[in-house]
Amino acid sequence: MDGTLDHVMLRVADLDDSLEWYQTHLDYEEKDRHEGDGFTIVYLGPEEMHEEGAMLELTHNEDEDDLEVGDAWGHIAVRVPEDELESSYQQLMDEGVEDYRDPESCGGRYAFVKDPDGHEIEIVKRDYGAKWSLDHTMIRVEDADEAIGFWTRKFEYEHAGRWESDTFANYFMKPEGAAEEAMTVELTYNYDGRSYELGDAWGHLCVEVDDLAGDWEQLQTREAADYRDPESNDNMYAFTKDQDGHEIELLERDPNADSLFPF
C-alpha cells in the first residue's frame, strides 16, 4: 500500500463564508461539490495542482453552526515561494485577514493565520509546488512511537523529515517515492504527557488507494481499527482510525469518472 494523501477534511459553520475566504485569500477554486441529505461537501485547491497534490475538503452540515476546534487537530500548512513569506503575509493583512502570528514572531521561518472557523493555517516557505498548495496537515499524538509505527506499519509511510526541540518533536510522514508536491502528515508529540480533545471541527485525512477492498483487507491484517468498512459504505470508501482516534479515509478514485465524489 503506497497511497498518497488525497485530501484533508475540515467542518465549517458557514459554507459561503468559508468558500469566499479560501477563494479570495488563497486563490483556491472549487474542484467539485456534492449536495447530500443535510450536508454539503466541496473540494477546493489551487488552479494548477500537481497530480499528487492534495485538496481541501470543506464539509458543512445543516443546523451545525457551533463547531469546536479541539487541540488534537493542529493545522494545515500552505506553501509560498522562499522569498515571498513576508509579502504573502502582508497581502493577507491588506485583504483583511486577522493578524495571528506574523513572520517576525516566528523567526522569519513561517507564519500563521486563521480561517473563519478558527482553523489554523501555517504559511511555509517552499521552492516547489503551486503557491498556497497544501504542504502538510499537523495532528497531535500522545505517543510518538505508536504514531510513527501506525503510519509505517499500516500505510507503509516513511520519514520525510523531523524536527526536535527541548519540549516537543515533529515527525513528517509520506509514502516512499512520493513527489515533493504531495502532502505530508505532521505528527506533533509534546514531551509533557498531555492528552488532547478531537473536537468536531476537525474531520479526517484521506489516503487514495489503488484497491479499496484489497487494501482494506491488508489494513485489517495489520490490525488497523475496523471503523467503517467498505461494505458499510456501499464499497465506495472506508474509514479507519489511528491510535489517537484521528479518522483516516481510504478512497479509490476512478480517473475516468465525471465527479471527484464516488456517490
Rank of each mutant, 00 (worst) to 15 (best):
D2F: 11
G3N: 09
L5R: 05
L5T: 06
D6L: 14
H7E: 04
H7Y: 15
V8A: 12
V12K: 06
L15G: 09
L15V: 08
D17E: 14
D17H: 07
L19S: 07
D27S: 13
D37Q: 12
Y43V: 00
Y43S: 03
G45Y: 03
E48H: 11
E48S: 10
H50A: 12
E51R: 12
E52H: 09
M55I: 02
L56K: 09
E62V: 09
E64N: 10
E64T: 11
L67H: 07
V69C: 12
G70D: 11
D71A: 07
G74P: 11
V78I: 14
E84V: 00
E84Y: 00
E84R: 12
Q91H: 13
D94S: 08
V97N: 05
E98K: 11
R101G: 00
D102E: 14
S105A: 13
C106N: 12
V113C: 06
K114P: 00
P116E: 06
D117Q: 07
G118K: 12
I121G: 02
I121Y: 06
K125C: 10
K125Y: 05
D127P: 02
Y128S: 05
K131I: 08
K131R: 15
W132F: 15
S133C: 07
D135S: 14
H136F: 07
V141S: 09
D143A: 05
D145N: 12
E146Q: 15
E146W: 01
E146K: 15
E146G: 00
I148L: 09
T152Y: 04
R153A: 05
E158R: 14
G161K: 10
S165G: 07
S165A: 13
D166L: 09
D166S: 12
T167K: 11
T167N: 12
A169C: 08
Y171F: 15
F172W: 13
K174S: 10
E176T: 12
A179G: 01
M183I: 00
M183K: 07
T184Q: 14
L187I: 02
T188V: 08
Y189Q: 07
Y191C: 01
R194W: 01
L198I: 15
A201H: 05
A201G: 14
H204S: 08
L205R: 02
L205S: 04
C206D: 03
V207N: 02
D210I: 02
A213Y: 00
W216H: 06
E217P: 00
L219F: 13
T221G: 01
E223F: 11
A224M: 05
A224K: 10
A225N: 06
A225V: 15
A225R: 11
D226A: 13
D226L: 06
Y227I: 06
D229M: 03
E231P: 00
E231W: 01
N235L: 03
A238I: 06
A238N: 10
F239L: 09
T240S: 08
K241I: 13
Q243E: 10
D244M: 08
D244S: 08
E247K: 13
E247H: 10
I248N: 04
E249T: 03
L250K: 01
E252G: 08
R253P: 02
R253G: 02
R253H: 10
D258K: 04
F261K: 02
F261N: 08
P262E: 09
